[in-house]
Design a protein around this nucleic acid. Structure first.
Lengths: 208, 208
DNA sequence: GTTGTGACTATATTACAATATGGTCACTTA
DNA sequence: TAAGTGACCATATTGTAATATAGTCACAAC
């Protein structure tokens, strides 16, 4: 569901017909090549050859190579969002949702790091260069936090004195070093314990 | 005070007499050169020429170039610790000490970034490569947090149910992205608001 | 023992020419 | 009009030979 939102919003730097067989072929080839050889090492010509067209034709669909990277990155991050969503399903309380969310963010991102490093690197550099795909991802994370806090306040589980925006912002800032691929790299050694310890801290701060 | 502690512990990779005029000259020259031209761009020969000795003589006092870098880095971080100490002086409450500490960490580090970028870069790469000077710095920060939490618990300002180690660890993890030069780089845009918002969150989590 | 160095090596860095790549455009074909 | 491309340009990247640097060591002077 988040995936669909993200891709629809990601229409910048796209060209030509939005629904087109060739566009899909390009994305498919890019997923393959970027994942296997990395973003830098695959050339636009590689993608063109792979689908049997000329390089020039690629540029009928994407304004830049980065625009292709954005789509791949967006798909990657959408998969993480999906994993987060699934991890939260069936949580009995808002507290539990928050714990699961935090844990899922870290686990999904770490897994990407270890199992699809090339795609992870794209996400990391995308975060560093503030690609649209990344800022949309962060927005979604914030939205999830807002929903959790809102629900927790409604149910009386969380305190209501602090302005909700500040609460959400603060929680987001705490999660950020583990949710942002660019930062997670430097915090991987903490990936095992930090979510638990920080979830505890956040939840203590939320107690009425 | 922290400075003294740190330097004393930093005797790894040092050679020859520990108290020696020439050692001081080397450090002095290194402070000058590293700050002006950066760690990578200054050569050991530069330092040697600058103090009128041969390069080989430098290696009578330091086992590696990095060992010289460690001293400079250590001094830099000690200055930050000093600034933190001074910022906390006269705080009426533990809460206030924590606020001031967090603020001072970010301000001192940001200031280093903007006003002595070359030295900042040394600290950042030192953090990335886990130099001793950096791990000692982080220990000191943790120690300061422990003292604040301890005092706050004694005075009844903070809750006492959570194991104090977990509390300290959690607070440390929250501050880390702003206190660690390697991470601060990516969070500079948050340097203005994050300390306040996160201090608030931490203090809510500490309320009895 | 302490102070001090020139000469040396293996590795790292630079400079730069050769090559490759991102991106455009006029043009063809159906 | 939509599908598709070869030729082209400016910049980025690479390969590599020349240079520079970190670090050692045997040795000299006092």
């Amino acid at each position: 569901m988040y995936a669909i939102n993200m891709i629809k919003k990601l229409d910048n730097n796209l060209r030509g017909p939005s629904e087109h067989n060739v566009r899909d072929q390009i994305v498919e080839a890019a997923a393959e090549y970027f994942s296997r050889y990395g973003y830098e090492k695959t050339t636009v010509s590689d993608l063109a050859k792979s689908i049997g067209f000329s390089k020039a034709y690629i540029y009928k669909f994407f304004a830049t190579k980065q625009a292709i990277g954005e789509v791949i990155c967006s798909n990657t991050l959408s998969a993480i969002l999906k994993a987060i969503d699934e991890a939260m399903v069936g949580s009995p309380t808002a507290s539990e949702r928050l714990r699961r969310m935090f844990k899922a963010v870290v686990e999904a991102s770490s897994q990407l790091f270890f199992e699809d490093r090339k795609l992870y690197d794209i996400a990391a550099s995308a975060a560093g260069e503030q690609w649209q795909s990344c800022t949309l991802y962060q927005e979604q994370i914030k939205k999830i936090i807002l929903e959790i806090v809102h629900a927790g306040r409604e149910s009386g589980e969380f305190e209501r004195k602090t302005p909700i925006d500040e609460t959400v912002n603060a929680i987001y800032l705490v999660i950020q070093p583990y949710g942002n691929p660019l930062l997670l790299q430097h915090n991987l050694h903490l990936a095992e314990h930090a979510p638990m310890i920080l979830s505890n801290l956040i939840l203590r701060s939320l107690s009425p």
